Computed example of a mutant assay.
Amino acid sequence: MDGLANLATTVGNRFATNLRGSFTDLTPEKVIRIVIIAGAYLLLRPYLVKLAGRAQMQSHEEEAARTEAEAKVKISPNELRGMVNIPEDTDEEDDPAGQASGPDWGKKARRRQREIIKRMLEAEEQRLRETLEEQEDKDIEEFLDKE
């Protein structure tokens, strides 16, 4: 306890001595130098903050673009289901004016096209499932090899 009191008085004495010495050695040149430095800091600080904010915003935008690109690459079968619009199995014309906007396909052609789209979706889902299973197998093998 005595050492702690000694330390506190030593620190207090040194602080008071250094503070007093700083003000007694203050010459007009040092005062002008301090005023110039403080003024320059106050004038330049807003511009530096703006510049840093702009750089940070650009960094965040690049990171967001990178994560968005990675998210587009890694797509699950469930996410794929909502992205592709499969036409309904109706054979009625959708255009109220009776004019077709594209080629005039017959009923069989529309059905074939729907089937092709469904098969493509199923194949993509199967491929994604297999790659996911392979990744899980690799993870399991990694843990088994460690033992």
Rank of each mutant, 00 (worst) to 15 (best):
N18E: 13
A65E: 10
E79Q: 05
D139T: 08
Q58P: 00
A38L: 05
E130Y: 01
Q99H: 15
A8F: 08
E134T: 03
V84A: 04
D145N: 14
L4A: 08
R66H: 09
G21L: 06
G82V: 03
K108L: 15
S76G: 06
G102V: 04
D89Y: 05
F15I: 09
K108Y: 13
D2F: 11
E29Q: 04
L4P: 02
F23C: 11
K138F: 08
K50H: 04
E147F: 15
E68N: 09
E93V: 00
G39I: 00
G98S: 04
E115V: 07
E136N: 03
L19F: 14
I117P: 02
T27P: 05
A40V: 10
I34R: 15
K74S: 12
E141F: 01
R111N: 05
P87F: 01
G21T: 04
R14H: 05
D137H: 10
I32G: 10
A65T: 06
K72G: 11
L144M: 09
G102A: 03
G21F: 03
D95G: 09
F143R: 13
E124D: 05
K72L: 12
S76W: 07
M120G: 14
A97R: 10
W105Y: 15
F15S: 13
K146E: 09
P28K: 02
G82F: 02
E88Y: 06
E136Y: 01
K118N: 07
F143E: 13
A5H: 07
E62M: 00
I37P: 00
R54N: 14
E136L: 01
G102Q: 00
F143Q: 14
E141A: 05
P28A: 06
A38D: 07
H60C: 11
